[in-house]
Amino acid sequence: MIDLENSPAPDDMFSVGNAFWVLITGNYVFIGTEYVEEQQVIMTKEQLLYVLEQYKAFLEGDYNDPNNPPDPIDVEFIAEGQEAIDIYNGLPNSHLVPYAC
């Protein structure tokens, strides 16, 4: 697992693949796709780490057991859709969402 809090990754583009983008500037993480505007979010690094910890617990459980269904994953974010793009693009030192320019 990546230690995001102590990652040597610079602010900027953190990961790209199949039209999905993860951009980090300061304490903010933008996750988006080029194809579905509603499926873009901006969150803090802490919010992302919280989601990843819950996902890790899900993967470690027996999610195929119908008598013990997994807990839902609680996802918090600052904004979604065009609002997330606008907030990210307005951050100091942001290099902008490439497909929204």
Results as ranks from 00 to 15, higher is better:
1 M>W: 09
2 I>H: 08
4 L>G: 00
6 N>I: 07
6 N>G: 09
6 N>K: 14
6 N>S: 13
6 N>M: 10
7 S>Q: 07
8 P>E: 13
10 P>F: 04
11 D>E: 09
12 D>G: 15
12 D>C: 10
13 M>P: 02
13 M>I: 07
14 F>T: 06
14 F>H: 05
15 S>N: 12
17 G>T: 03
17 G>M: 10
19 A>W: 10
21 W>C: 02
24 I>G: 02
25 T>M: 08
25 T>P: 05
28 Y>N: 03
29 V>P: 03
30 F>Y: 07
31 I>E: 03
34 E>D: 11
35 Y>L: 10
36 V>M: 12
36 V>H: 14
38 E>A: 13
40 Q>F: 03
42 I>E: 00
44 T>V: 03
47 Q>R: 09
47 Q>D: 00
48 L>W: 03
51 V>K: 09
51 V>I: 15
53 E>T: 09
53 E>V: 04
53 E>M: 06
54 Q>A: 05
54 Q>T: 08
55 Y>N: 07
58 F>V: 10
60 E>R: 08
60 E>V: 03
62 D>R: 11
62 D>F: 06
63 Y>I: 14
63 Y>T: 13
64 N>F: 14
65 D>R: 01
66 P>R: 00
69 P>K: 01
71 D>V: 13
72 P>Q: 05
73 I>N: 10
73 I>H: 12
73 I>P: 04
73 I>T: 14
74 D>W: 13
74 D>Y: 14
75 V>W: 02
76 E>I: 11
76 E>W: 11
78 I>V: 12
78 I>Y: 01
79 A>G: 03
79 A>M: 02
79 A>R: 00
80 E>L: 02
81 G>P: 05
81 G>T: 08
85 I>H: 02
86 D>K: 14
86 D>L: 11
87 I>R: 00
87 I>N: 01
87 I>Q: 00
88 Y>M: 06
89 N>S: 08
90 G>F: 07
90 G>T: 07
90 G>V: 05
93 N>D: 13
93 N>W: 06
94 S>I: 02
94 S>M: 04
95 H>D: 01
95 H>N: 05
95 H>F: 02
96 L>S: 08
96 L>V: 07
100 A>R: 04
101 C>P: 05
